[in-house]
Simulated assay, not measured.
Amino acid sequence: MRPWLRIFLIGLGLWVATVVVTTVTANSTLIPTLVLLGSFLVPVTFVVWAHGRDRSPDITVELLFNCFVIGGVLGVLGASALETWLLKPSLVIFLGVGLIEEGVKLAALLFVTRHLLRRTARDGLVLGGTVGFGFAAFESAGYAFNALFTEDGLSLRQLVETEVLRGILAPVGHGLWTAIIGGVLFAAHGRLTGKVIMAYLGVALLHALWDSMNAIAIGLTLVFTGQSWQFSQLRIGRVPRVTEQQVHLYTVLDWGGLLLISVIGLLWLRSIARAPTVRVVEGR
């Protein structure tokens, strides 16, 4: 059995067992175990999978660990600080989030790999993806923790649902976007060239569209199927009732948009991975 698959199956089994035991015993001390297992399972699995496909001698276990933990934590801390200081509620807030989060992950990747002498685009894909998955793991742990608390007390169901959803979407989120930036960065020998800046802006746009897809789907649903009485209620600040047709259309637009963004990102990643491999040694 492949290492990544073994890690995933064992981790999934432990997570399911933790869910069952926590539910049966109502033992709140197991919640940190549940949060960490659920949040880190998919990101760690994909890092092991990516490393197994490349097998570059320059990508050591120590470097992967540094990218995942140090890069991930620095990214989360930087994003939290900058979003708190710089962002205010507005129509472009999601674009601001995309620019900040992709920027701090790029900075974290540059910092962790600053001593790396040899670089290839494929190494950048792996290391960039590792930083992104580290960011996703720590961020997901925070979302899962927040989902636990409701007006009616602790909700194990909401915690589990949050971890399952974020686990499913993790491969086409932070890991994919930072892998793209890493691949372009390493192809540029670790320098912030025009191509790297354009890749950063492009990935930030995909990130912003991903985060805002819920609002976009709602807006498009109203444009296509909105009734006059619904617009009247919106104008006076009320949330109108929705029809069954609108619920179905919203769901199709929301998930269809996420799928389209994912396909664009994966095709972009594929084009970088298929580019001719040129290994550059700094200082030569």
Rank of each mutant, 00 (worst) to 15 (best):
L5P: 12
I7H: 14
I7L: 15
F8K: 13
V19R: 04
T22S: 14
N27M: 06
L30V: 13
I31G: 02
L34C: 13
L37Y: 14
F40T: 06
V42N: 03
V47P: 14
W49G: 00
D54P: 00
D58A: 08
E62P: 01
F65L: 13
C67I: 03
F68D: 02
G72Q: 06
V73K: 00
G78S: 07
A79D: 10
A79S: 15
A81N: 07
A81W: 10
L82Q: 10
L82D: 13
L86V: 14
L87V: 08
K88H: 12
K88I: 11
P89M: 12
S90G: 15
V92W: 15
I93W: 09
L95G: 13
L95H: 12
V97E: 06
G98T: 05
G98V: 07
L99S: 11
L99T: 07
I100S: 06
E102Y: 05
L106F: 12
L106G: 03
A107T: 04
L110N: 00
L110F: 01
V112M: 00
T113W: 03
H115R: 15
R118S: 12
L127H: 03
L127Y: 00
V131S: 00
F133A: 04
G134H: 03
F135H: 07
F138M: 01
E139Q: 05
S140R: 07
A141V: 03
G142F: 06
G142S: 08
F145G: 05
N146V: 11
A147N: 04
A147I: 04
F149I: 08
E151G: 11
E161R: 03
T162M: 14
G167W: 02
G167Q: 08
I168W: 01
L169S: 10
L169G: 06
A170L: 02
P171T: 03
H174Q: 02
H174C: 01
G175V: 04
I180M: 05
G183F: 02
G183S: 01
V184T: 11
L185G: 12
L185Q: 07
L185T: 07
R191L: 02
L192I: 14
G194D: 08
G194H: 12
K195G: 08
I197W: 14
Y200I: 09
Y200H: 09
L201Q: 07
G202P: 09
G202F: 05
V203A: 08
A208H: 04
W210A: 04
D211F: 04
S212T: 08
N214G: 14
I216Y: 13
I218Q: 11
G219Q: 06
L220Q: 07
L220M: 07
T225M: 15
G226Y: 09
G226H: 10
G226V: 13
Q227P: 10
S228W: 09
S232R: 11
L234K: 05
L234M: 13
E244L: 11
Q246N: 06
Q246E: 10
H248I: 14
L249M: 13
Y250H: 08
T251A: 12
L253M: 04
L253Q: 08
D254E: 13
G256Y: 04
G257C: 05
L260N: 00
L260C: 12
S262D: 02
S262I: 00
V263L: 08
G265K: 06
L266M: 15
L267R: 12
L267P: 09
W268R: 00
R270P: 02
I272Y: 00
P276H: 04
T277Y: 01
V280S: 14
E282F: 03
